[in-house]
């Protein structure tokens, strides 16, 4: 896996919601160029979320393509009472859930991909940055090791800050089931990270994760 490298702009798509409001409105009125601009502004973030949810590049690609087709067909119904990106996250989560359902029905081995990760957080102190990057790497690995059903809730809640109700709606489960899955996911993650610490201590490693 390629280590994170700094990049200049905010990670979460499309970054500047106020500047995208006019584009969203134009797209709602059927302006194709405005919709294209929204796609260009958001597709990296949408791909990131899709990859976090599905765990592989090919499925993430399918999810992103399906997401924008659905968004294009339904942009006229977007009421603007949520941020455009939140609306897009929800469509992405729904498409990923559908894709994962298909994958469960046609079960095959999960692929592990060489991911190129861009770290968009500025950290001034190089040693602190290295330590932080190592800890994040451990959490990332633990997250990727979760079963997709658990990973989805923790990604949507703890990485993307979606409310429980939205997560439940897009994954097709009840709010209480979403909360239960979230608790299980966090507990499993914590156990995994503690185990990694123990393994690291036994092998004489230096870093302690969580």
């Amino acid at each position: 896996m390629t280590p994170p490298t700094p990049a200049p702009r905010a990670a979460r798509p499309p970054g500047d919601e106020s500047s995208s409001a006019a584009l969203v409105e134009a797209a709602r009125q059927g302006d194709r160029e405005a919709f294209d601009a929204l796609v260009r502004a958001t597709y990296v973030g949408t791909y990131t979320l899709a990859h976090r949810l599905t765990g592989d590049a090919d499925t993430a690609r399918d999810v992103v393509q399906e997401t924008y087709l659905r968004a294009y067909r339904s942009i006229g119904r977007f009421r603007g009472d949520a941020q455009f990106t939140t609306w897009l996250y929800r469509i992405t989560a729904n498409c990923a859930s559908t894709q994962l359902g298909r994958r469960r029905r046609h079960r095959h081995e999960e692929l592990t991909d060489e991911l190129v990760v861009r770290d968009l957080r500025p950290v001034a102190d190089p040693p602190a940055r290295a330590e932080h990057a190592e800890l994040r790497g451990r959490v990332r690995e633990a997250l990727e090791g979760l079963p997709p059903r658990l990973r989805a809730v923790v990604v949507l809640r703890d990485l993307y800050d979606l409310p429980h109700e939205a997560i439940a709606a897009e994954l097709g489960i009840s709010v209480s089931a979403a909360k239960v899955r979230l608790h299980r996911a966090r507990r499993k993650l914590r156990d995994d990270l503690v185990q990694r610490d123990v393994d690291d201590d036994e092998s004489g490693g230096s870093a302690r994760a969580v």
Binding site: V44, V117, D119, L120
Partner: peptide, 11 residues
């Protein structure tokens, strides 16, 4: 985990 939300993967 929240800090992972600030990363992007290269598509």
């Amino acid at each position: 985990l929240a800090s992972l939300g600030a990363e992007t993967l290269v598509p």
